[in-house]
């Protein structure tokens, strides 16, 4: 009788072998970048097969590393090809793109604030990206950076509360969760504003 873990492990190894064969055969750099994302999914599958709370605690840093690595590699690719200052225009003028973003982004941001922490920051940041992409990018880097800085201060203050007044732990957890939310949301919304303009 083959168990659940062994079955998943066999399937994961087959997928990893296929992914690396095609990564080996590929010569174009952008194709390789997309296949890197496939390899990331395989790595997350291996972690998810552990199937306890440990897996959940390990997947979240994996996702952080995945998105950071992907953004860095994309920027390196753009610089290497010399197309970083290329202006892409967005002539997709369907009617939905005018009406959907405020309501949908509002629901996503509200849900993210209720959820808080890194997951809430990701969901709320996705809402802000959607709004900025569909409405055109307004340059408000100073405001976003200021909010991010205050979030950092709040996070540090929460840890001081943990160390000095341990009986106020619930208050400190709330402050830390809100600060992480604001930081992740600010970082993600920077992605949304950098879609079109040439000087990022």
């Amino acid at each position: 009788m083959i168990g659940m873990y062994q079955t998943g492990l066999i399937a994961a190894f087959i997928c990893i072998i296929i992914a690396f064969i095609s990564l080996y055969q590929e010569t174009d750099d952008l194709h390789r970048l997309i296949l890197t994302d496939l390899a990331e999914i395989m790595a997350l599958l291996l972690i998810a097969l552990v199937a306890t709370d440990l897996a959940e605690a390990l997947i979240l840093p994996g996702l952080v590393v995945m998105i950071a690595e992907l953004m860095a590699l994309a920027e390196i690719y753009l610089v290497k090809e010399g197309i970083q200052r290329k202006k892409i225009s967005c002539p997709l003028d369907i009617e939905v793109i005018q009406t959907a973003p405020p309501i949908l982004a509002g629901i996503l941001v509200l849900y993210g604030i209720i959820l808080s922490g890194f997951s809430g920051g990701a969901v709320a940041g996705l809402g802000i990206i959607f709004y900025c992409v569909c409405k055109g990018s307004d340059e408000q880097f100073a405001l976003i950076e200021t909010a991010s800085g205050y979030a950092w201060v709040a996070w540090i203050a929460a840890f001081f509360i943990f160390l000095i007044l341990p009986e106020q732990w619930f208050f400190a957890v709330m402050i830390a969760g809100g600060a992480i939310l604001v930081k992740v949301m600010a970082k993600f919304s920077l992605i949304g504003t950098m879609s079109g303009d040439p000087n990022v």
Partner: peptide, 8 residues
Amino acid sequence: YAGNRICH
């Protein structure tokens, strides 16, 4: 009604 507002 909210869905209608989303879909123009």
